[in-house]
Design a protein around this nucleic acid. Structure first.
Length: 904
RNA sequence: GCCGAAGUGGCGGAAUUGGUAGACGCAGCGGAUUCAAAAUCCGCCGCCUUUAAAAGCGUGGGGGUUCGAGUCCCCCCUUCGGCACCA
């Protein structure tokens, strides 16, 4: 073996070996514990980017580590092949979406193989193929029969120029991205899955997932949004009653108006003979449908002229139309309490609607109470007085104190809504009650009157799965004039999507083709039409993990799923925290209830990795347009302390501007091509850097100098192992015969074995595992003991290092394992090295010595020394003396193995 | 607007349970080797005062709890992710 490290040769040899021996193809094996490690599959966008490299390297490290723990490891890969970008590329390049997609898959599969990921390629799946999506169509028709799939009108972004539905991503500042036309809201009939039926289980199930990040569980809990409140009926003079839901029934007496959505029947009725209102309703239709857009737009409204009757006071309250009330949520009507809700306050201020405060601030109530008591007792209420005066404690009389309280109340009244819970005032029968008492009393009162009832409300909405697009799975439904929406019979599935089509970009080819949709009704046999919408692509990504377990199965999954599921470790970007990861949990429960899978949740452990970011560079035109320059074309300039002073373009040596670190993207031209890095450094070095540069859940800054550092490490490691392999044979280690230097290296080795196993297996902090291995290499390269036992300890160290680095840099380790004399063995099938507890033993420990919490020195003492000994030594430390002298030692805190703190 | 994160040297990051802040790597500085360069090896490297010794300051900002806070609590700022049709 040559002792210069040639990554391209080493990697080709290892990959050929893995391929020839089918090293990563697995089957069910009851004799070994299984481990299913899944990285989110690839959208075939064209070529692999650094986000993929990072995601898949994390999965590969975990998979290879688990295999070395003796597990039967399944790690599959596939293609999330339907989606909008294929349509955009089709328009741009004048190719069919299918052709573009398949070409990308070919290219990207090659890139994944070049990275050396330990995938079982025999299980590869592609979601745009009928043998995949047929199962999705079957599941859907079954859900229709169960009543879990239904059709209803729902609102979409409509481009009035192109006459198409736009994705939220295609709406920029309320306008269509291609036409620039102001987008309109339009209602069309669409298919929905009843995810809301599963809301309680999706919420409670989060408590059974200790292996999921808390941030993701919290986001899902808020998204599902269980809330307890009251549904209240307001009768309307001359109209149908309005029903509203509130979580704050304690503020009912402060309700001064109601607001309804622009699409609400009462609004439409009011607009019938009010042209101005009709105009306003039309204006509410402009703009996109995304919640972010609706929530941040200016709050606008108009009175309908209708009045609602307050269910307790009988007061007449105006009913307004407001653009922030959505027909799709709840009832499309809300009660407004501007005294105690920020949004209602802003709206009331804009339109001079009355504000009524009905919950008093605790502080004001207490202040009045205390003041009365204290003045009665002739004592001044100093603390409250000081608080109300902003810290001043000048003398005052009752008149001025009351004035302060009034000013404070007015301040609250005028400036902002008081949204905290408090004591009810101005609330007639409910005065003096706290939140819970008022909630109860209002509920009882309304329930008795028949005007309200307690209700649990969910923020979660049903999953709209219809897309008015071509490149997706056809929705298997037939529309018959007589029979309505009829599911396609299972023996007629799949409904295939034609792949060889001309794609103009405006209309879907299957919508434009009058022949494709023509069919007969499965129930009555009359001419009928097919649904031309396709499924949301989240449908495909909701069950692919289960299909990997059952390649070739006639059913969606078969009994093999029982062996492999649930997924033991799922890895993907945090951007999927809610949508994908919630749909995937939901779909798993649908499959469970269909008897296809046994467990309740699809994955027991989840790891969300951060983004890959890089520095950006640009130059500005005369007209201030920024031209983004790729980091590869730029040289960084530094001062003598290494601080960045500027950057120049390599091509002309002239200055470019530094634009800050951003997510790698085409628009900022700061993407680093993984292919280029692999060609230059090899896959192992790229894998090593992406694991070392930051922990997996944080963002990773790509920096080529850092990659150079990893290449240096690989060369040093390669040389160290090869030099050792050239030494004469060594005897067995004799633990009793080791000298201090040999014992020190062995202790470092065995500490490292413990740490690296914990970092890979439990913490998933690959960066600190690699740092520990770098320290170990530093230690072994300083160790120049050529004695028999010295060579034996070095051998143990290097052999363990090859095993420990194998999950991250498997190609080099495959070669080095042979260099160490194991020609016949596969490194992946070696057991993980064991920690030798005896090697960890120490004679003495070092303790930090603090005086009043500040470090003043250290002491070294025997491991078995007591606290008194530690205290005595600590007080004798020279650095401690000046800070203790002339002072009384009040206390000495000794934390064994850590610190001694002397308090003076 | 709402929900969730993050903020530590020149840079990426470490500090796992409240116990020596800055491991490891990069960049930089000094040296060795070399005809030279690359590669490699050795040393230094938070800020500030200082000849040195030593002291002070220091984990986005402001308060607090504690013998002791990057870590816990309260308030604020900034950046990032998601908001149901990007995937």
């Amino acid at each position: 073996m040559d002792d210069t490290y040639d990554p391209q040769a080493v990697e080709t040899a290892a990959q050929t070996y893995w391929n020839d021996t089918r090293a990563y193809e697995v089957s069910e094996d009851a004799s070994r514990p299984k481990y299913y490690c899944l990285s989110m599959f690839m959208y075939p966008s064209g070529s692999m980017h650094m986000g993929h490299v990072r995601n898949y390297t994390i999965g590969d490290v975990i998979s290879r580590f688990q295999r070395m723990q003796g597990k039967n490891v399944l790690q599959p890969m596939g293609w999330d092949a339907f989606g909008l970008p294929a349509e955009n590329a089709a328009i741009k390049n004048d190719t069919a979406p299918a052709k573009w997609t398949y070409a990308n898959i070919e290219h990207m599969r090659g890139q994944l193989k070049r990275m050396g990921f330990a995938y079982d390629w025999s299980r590869e799946l592609t979601t745009c193929k009928p043998d995949y999506y047929v199962h999705e169509q079957r599941m859907f028709v079954r859900l229709m029969k169960k009543g879990l799939a239904y059709r209803k009108a729902s609102v979409v972004n409509w481009d009035p120029v192109d006459q198409t539905v736009l994705a939220n991503e295609q709406v920029i500042d309320g306008r269509g991205w291609r036409t620039g036309a102001v987008v309109q809201k339009r209602e069309i009939p669409q298919w929905f899955l009843k995810i809301t039926d599963y809301a309680p289980e999706l919420l409670d199930g989060l408590d059974q997932l200790p292996g999921w990040p808390d941030a993701v569980k919290t986001m899902q809990r808020h998204w599902i949004g269980r809330s307890e409140g009251l549904e209240i009926r307001f009768d309307v003079d001359g109209g149908d009653p309005l029903t509203v839901f509130t979580t704050r029934p304690d503020t009912l007496m402060g309700c001064t108006y109601l607001a309804i959505a622009a699409e609400h029947p009462l609004a439409l009725k009011a607009a019938e003979d009010d042209a101005e209102l009709a105009d306003f309703l039309r204006s509410c239709k402009s703009g996109g449908v995304s919640e972010a857009e609706i929530d941040t737009q200016e709050k606008r409204g108009m009175a309908t002229g209708f009045e609602a009757v307050h269910p307790v006071s009988g007061e007449r309250l105006p009913v307004w139309v407001a653009n922030f009330v959505l027909m799709g949520y709840g009832t499309g009507a809300v009660m407004c309490v501007p005294g105690h809700d920020e949004r209602d306050r802003e709206f009331a201020s804009n339109y001079q609607l009355p504000v009524k405060m009905v919950v008093a601030d605790r502080g004001v109530i207490d202040a009045i109470h205390e003041l009365d008591q204290d003045l009665a007792a002739g004592v001044l209420a100093d603390p409250m007085h000081a608080a109300l005066h902003g810290g001043q404690t000048d003398a005052y009389d009752k008149a001025s104190a009351v004035r302060v309280i009034e000013e404070f109340s007015n301040y609250i009244r005028e400036v902002e809504a008081y949204t905290e819970h408090g004591t009810l005032v101005n609330s007639g029968p409910f005065d003096g009650m706290n939140f819970e008492q008022a909630f109860d009393a209002v509920a009882k009162r309304l329930e008795a009157d028949g005007t309200g009832q307690r209700k649990i409300n969910w923020r979660l909405r049903d999953w709209g799965v219809s897309r008015q697009r071509y490149w997706g799975c056809p929705i298997p439904v037939i529309y018959c004039d007589d029979c309505g929406a009829v599911p396609v019979p299972e023996d007629q599935l799949p409904v295939e999507l034609p792949e060889d089509v001309a794609f103009s970009g405006v209309a879907s080819p299957i919508k434009a083709d009058p022949q494709w949709r023509k069919t007969t009704c499965p129930e009555c046999g009359k001419p009928a039409e097919r649904e031309t919408d396709t499924f949301d692509t989240f449908m495909e990504s909701s069950w692919y993990y289960a299909r990997y377990t059952s390649p070739g199965a006639d059913a969606q999954v078969d009994a093999r799923a029982g062996y492999w599921l649930p997924v033991d470790q799922y890895i993907g970007g945090i951007e999927h925290a809610i949508l994908h990861l919630l749909y995937f949990r939901f779909y798993h429960k649908l499959m469970r209830d269909a008897g296809l899978v046994a467990c309740d949740e699809p994955t027991s452990n989840l790891l969300c990795q951060g983004m890959v970011v890089a520095e950006t560079f640009y130059r500005e035109d005369g007209d201030r347009t920024k031209h983004w320059i790729n980091p590869a074309e730029v040289d960084i300039q530094r001062d003598e302390r290494g601080r960045i002073t500027g950057a120049v373009l390599k091509a002309d040596g002239k200055r470019v501007e530094i634009g800050g670190v951003e997510k790698m993207s085409k628009s900022k031209n700061n993407g680093v091509d993984p292919q280029h890095m692999i060609d230059k450094y090899g896959a192992d070095t790229v894998r090593l850097f992406s694991m070392f540069a930051s922990p997996p859940d944080q963002s990773l800054e790509w920096n080529e100098a850092g990659v150079d550092g990893m290449a240096r490490f690989m060369r040093r490691f390669w040389r160290e192992v090869n030099e050792h392999a050239g030494q004469p044979d060594h005897p067995e280690i004799d633990p009793g015969a080791l000298d201090a230097g040999q014992r020190d290296l062995r202790r470092v080795l065995h500490e490292t074995i413990g740490k690296v196993g914990d970092d890979y297996g439990r913490r998933h902090n690959f960066n600190t595992a690699i740092a520990a291995l770098m320290e170990l290499l530093n230690a072994v390269s300083k160790f120049d003991d050529m004695s028999d036992q010295g060579r034996a300890v070095r051998h143990e160290t290097l052999e363990s290092m090859v095993l420990m680095l194998n999950p991250v840099t498997p190609h080099a380790c495959h070669a080095l394992w042979q260099v160490l004399g194991h020609a016949q063995s596969v490194v992946e099938d070696q057991p993980w090295p064991q920690v030798d507890k005896q090697a960890l033993a120490r004679d003495s420990v070092k303790l930090a010595v603090q005086v009043n919490g500040k470090l003043r020195g250290t002491i070294e003492l025997a491991v078995d020394a007591g606290k008194d000994e530690a205290e005595r030594l600590a007080l004798g430390v020279p650095g401690v003396q000046p800070f203790v002298e002339g002072k009384t030692v009040r206390k000495v805190i000794v934390v064994p193995g850590k610190i001694v703190n002397i308090v003076v």
